[in-house]
Structure formats: structure tokens, C-alpha cells
């Protein structure tokens, strides 16, 4: 009986410690680095734009908060700060673009991206704003 109580106490202490560690881990968790995350969808910029503009609600339900890997020609590159930049991917005959936001890019200029170049970007979809589709936490896919 005495041993049972002692063993239970040890188990409780261990479980408690695990709980605290997991709690601290979750509390301090940073945004995921997507370079090693498997995408939920792989598609081109044109199809993504088309799907959102045809039916925003169903595309929102399907893609928002999901990891997308999107390919398309680079329309514009906007350096925002030393570590943040936005790249827009365009689609033929479309005004709308896919706006990809990169944070924590060590040295964006070293990426040497050119307008018109075909590029693949992985990011989390946050939805559609004024016809454009927004991705965040983006990384380049080689």
C-alpha cells in the first residue's frame, strides 16, 4: 500500500513535469518554418485565383489555414524591411495576383529573384482581399 502511494506520487510528478514542458513549448512556439512542411495543396497561381474569384466562400473553406505550394510568374517584388518582403505571383489575363509575404528572410536580395521569372512558393493561405489571394510565412521552394 505504501509503495502504491509512492509510485502513484512519482507518476503524478512525472506527468505534471511533462505537462509543464508541453505547456511551455506550446506557449513559446514560434510560427512554423514551412521549408520542411508538406503542402496540403500544390497548384498554379492562375487556378488558385480563379477558384477564389468564382466562389470565395468555398475556396476560403478549402484553402484558408492550409499550406499551399503555388507556382507562377513573379509580377512584383517589394522589399519591406531587412528581413521581410512580399512577392506577387500573377496569372495570365488576370488583374488579381497571389501576394506572398516572407518574414525572416535572412537576406532577401541574395535570393536574386527577377520579375517574370517562374517561381514556386510555399505559404499558409489567409484568404482573399480585393481579388488577391494572400499567403503568409512564405518560403521559396527549389
Amino acid at each position: 500500500m505504501k509503495h502504491l502511494f509512492r509510485n502513484l506520487l512519482i507518476v503524478a510528478v512525472i506527468l505534471g513535469a511533462i505537462g509543464v514542458v508541453i505547456g511551455l513549448y506550446l506557449f513559446n512556439k514560434k510560427d512554423p518554418n514551412l521549408s520542411k512542411v508538406k503542402p496540403d495543396y500544390i497548384l498554379d497561381a492562375a487556378s488558385l485565383i480563379k477558384e477564389f474569384n468564382q466562389d470565395e466562400n468555398s475556396a476560403t473553406a478549402k484553402y484558408v489555414d492550409k499550406v499551399l505550394e503555388v507556382t507562377g510568374p513573379v509580377q512584383a517584388i517589394e522589399q519591406i524591411s531587412d528581413s521581410t518582403m512580399n512577392i506577387t505571383l500573377s496569372a495570365e489575363n488576370q488583374m488579381a495576383v497571389v501576394n506572398c509575404s516572407f518574414n525572416n528572410v535572412a537576406d532577401p536580395s541574395s535570393q536574386d529573384i527577377k520579375e517574370g521569372e517562374i517561381m514556386t512558393v510555399r505559404g499558409v493561405c489567409s484568404g482573399m482581399l480585393m481579388q488577391d489571394i494572400q499567403l503568409k510565412n512564405c518560403v521559396f521552394v527549389k
Partner: peptide, 16 residues
């Protein structure tokens, strides 16, 4: 001005 609320980024995933 227009923003998507989901496009806000935070230091910690839990805050987001």
C-alpha cells in the same frame, strides 16, 4: 484600407 485579419503575424503561434 482593407486587411485580412488572418494575415497578422505574431511572435508566438499561440498569440496568433
Amino acid at each position: 484600407f482593407q486587411v485580412l485579419m488572418k494575415s497578422f503575424k505574431f511572435e508566438k503561434a499561440l498569440m496568433e
